[in-house]
Design a protein around this nucleic acid. Structure first.
Lengths: 260, 260
DNA sequence: GAGTGGTCTAGACCACCAC
DNA sequence: TGGTGGTCTAGACCACTCA
């Protein structure tokens, strides 16, 4: 066992950089690498569903060891931005796969027979953002937005009434026709056709009484209790790009959540 | 400080074991270590809030490298069973800390001023488990259970009506008096006084109309929409030990959920 | 300063997949 | 058979806490 000569590993340079720019206290190398990969994702260097370079390639590119890249990718996979597949590679997460119809939908039928949902487009129009919507989406009041209304059916019965707002600037070619001809998840369309992948979302859930129009569409009595699910969805850079208000009829379905 | 001499990396024996008993396909060493630590937790070798041995100690004890223990602990920390604190040690997760009042409660006030909740015990009685409750909690119908009813108040207003069922066999000394004199989270009591830590939970959420009694207690009109949160909570070994049905008044609060 | 968790590396080998 | 992710190790050093 020959005693290790000198500090063999050039840890210092990047770490100095980190100390200089990181306000909080200290940013380990793998977190900086994570940031670089994230930048590549945001820049569209690798698109949803594609593979990113192998860990070895990334290690060479960034001048670090494979283990460090690995830890960075681990975190991105834990964030559901990447998906690792042993023997095949690491893939950019996507909403466009048939695996599980709607990645963000937590509604479950009572009998847990995973019945697929049918879609019915009610409306799709462009308009000016009302103040309260503009504020939540970090737009200016009056900015162009797209409003979409739709129903989701389970076993022939309407179960969800969605009201969706999107910033008009990002989704120029989005029309009712485009929506109607599209197969697969809505977020898949936004991701593949408009290059805006949904990364995460926050939901605020309340119980509300059905108003006249919603009651009619969901085929329940006015005043019936409905689950109101207000969702704000984000792309890269924590940029909000969708505001959605879903009204769920929870007579034969529930919203499931796991705590730990 | 004589390390266990002989086979320096006894990877094989444990792995053989894994291959033999693991039906799926292959269980890496760190996952077996995870299982061993889990067994220690379940056996009460280290109690909630205490520290577990250092990574080095565990590595020596299990005859593996520190890195392997580290990966095991990483997963347990990701599962919120352990909490790492740099420079201090690794601690068994607990509900009994004042840090964040209720670890599993997702109710948030509208103005996001984190108002603390006041408790009001309504009832605490022992009885025989109705069939539907027994089934969910893996008991026999007629087994003794404890039923607790309580209100949570925010700013003087009642917001949550909880109906809680616990298996009587596990919580012998649990009485109304005991509940009244206890400070801190309910799960903290179960954990420190009865040695039953709550590890994870599943919630099913619906919108319902307030019935007479619930409406009166929550001071809303009968028929008002309320959020119904049905929670099944588990200890170690995926054993269900609490069934709870909360009715939330979501007029000035909401149930928050983050998706990714 | 001693002890704990946290980072980083280098290298060997294993499991899985596709060609 | 070669490439990819996955595991395991050993050893050095860093960051944080506390006596």
């Amino acid at each position: 066992m020959s005693p290790p000569a000198a500090p063999v590993h050039p840890v210092t340079p990047l770490n100095e950089l980190a100390r200089a720019e990181a306000a909080p206290s200290f940013s380990p190398l793998y977190r900086q690498i994570k940031g670089l990969i994230l930048k590549g994702l945001q820049a569209g260097e690798w698109k949803a569903g594609e593979t990113i370079p192998s860990e070895m390639d990334l290690a060479a590119r960034f001048g670090v060891s494979q283990g460090t890249v690995r830890k960075a990718v681990d975190e991105l996979a834990a964030d559901n931005l990447l998906v690792r597949k042993q023997g095949k590679g690491t893939f950019v997460a996507t909403h466009a796969e048939q695996q599980q119809q709607y990645r963000f939908l937590r509604l479950t039928p009572d009998g847990d027979a995973a019945a697929s949902l049918g879609r019915q487009l009610l409306d799709c129009k462009r308009q000016r953002a009302p103040a309260f919507i503009a504020k939540l989406m970090q737009l200016r009041a009056g900015d162009p937005v797209i409003e979409i209304r739709r129903l989701l059916h389970s076993g022939g019965q309407p179960v969800v009434l969605d009201d969706i707002w999107l910033p008009g600037a990002l989704f120029k070619g989005l029309t009712a026709e485009r929506l109607l001809e599209h197969r697969g998840p809505f977020y898949g369309l936004l991701e593949t056709e408009f290059g805006v992948p949904m990364i995460r979302a926050q939901e605020k859930i309340r119980a509300v009484a059905a108003e006249e129009d919603a009651a009619a569409l969901l085929q329940v009595a006015p005043g019936s209790p409905l689950l109101s699910v207000e969702r704000l969805a984000f792309t890269y850079g924590d940029k909000p790009v969708e505001l959605r208000r879903g009204l769920y009829n929870t007579t034969h379905h529930f919203y499931r959540n796991d705590l730990n």
